[in-house]
């Protein structure tokens, strides 16, 4: 009883019993407490009553649209929301992410992938201030000193490139949409100029990646945005 109270709570919102069953089985085994909701309204109530640490949300709910659910939750809570949907079109993903979702997984997906995303989300909830030094594989970013090292050698970045990298680092593992990045780095005036972002990402990759054609740090989510690989 005491043990279960310490376990992270996950709210699974999906109207398909088969998927509910599958997720509950997969997550229970991984030491999570799983709550279930079948409709958007039930989900909104459950967020209040169960106070989950992570929400897994299906976009196609019988009573209301998933994006609407995200917006309503975001009005008062910053709880991480991972969207699970059979809608594989990029427009849907972008819409959900811009509405405030933290991540997106297209069905079908592997359990390993899901668990990794949940862990990234949990980590962000638990530790609000990111580590000053971010390390992954051979890449090291020291946010306090504004230094970037690849295989121990310092790389010189333009201020924009650095800002871009810093933004990705602070949201490591999370998908950032083009819009979100453009707005953050260049300001609202550049929202319709994604090529500025692409050029800078390309430059960053040439400086950081071993093979820019097969990037391993800055990953492209096609048609959606970018994600920095997380540990």
């Amino acid at each position: 009883m005491t043990k279960s109270n310490n376990l992270p709570r996950i709210l699974v919102v999906d109207d398909e019993p088969a998927i509910q069953r599958f997720l509950t089985t997969a997550l229970n085994g991984e030491e999570f407490i799983v709550h279930q909701a079948e409709t958007g309204h039930a989900a909104l109530t459950a967020v209040v009553t169960t106070k989950p640490e992570v929400i897994l949300l299906d976009l196609g709910l019988p009573d209301m649209d998933g994006c609407e659910v995200i917006k309503r939750i975001r009005q008062w809570s910053q709880v991480p929301i991972i969207v699970l949907s059979v809608r594989d079109r990029e427009g849907d993903k972008v819409m959900a992410l811009n509405a405030g979702a933290d991540d997106y997984l297209t069905k079908p997906f592997g359990v390993g992938e899901l668990l990794a995303r949940i862990r990234v989300a949990l980590r962000r909830t638990l530790q609000q201030t990111p580590e000053p030094v971010y390390r992954i594989d051979e890449l090291e970013i020291d946010l306090a000193r504004r230094r970037v090292l690849v295989r121990g050698e310092e790389v010189s970045l333009t201020p924009t490139e650095y800002d871009l990298l810093r933004l990705l680092v602070t949201h490591a593992g999370k998908v950032l949409t083009h819009r979100q990045i453009l707005k953050e780095i260049w300001g609202a005036a550049y929202l319709e100029q994604p090529h500025v972002l692409r050029v800078n990402v390309s430059n960053l990759r040439h400086k950081l990646e071993k093979d820019a054609s097969r990037p391993s740090y800055i990953l492209t989510e096609v048609g959606v945005g970018y994600r920095l690989k997380s540990t």
Binding site: P194, R198, V201, S213, P215, T220, V222
Partner: peptide, 30 residues
């Protein structure tokens, strides 16, 4: 169609990433 200016290298990278599992053990020269 959502026509945007795109980085072709990124395009190749994405395609390779999507086939990551199946490319294991195969050589792809870009």
């Amino acid at each position: 169609m959502k026509m945007e200016l795109c980085d072709v290298q990124d395009l190749v990278g994405c395609a390779l990433a999507a086939l990551d599992q199946r490319l294991k053990g195969r050589t792809v020269n870009v």
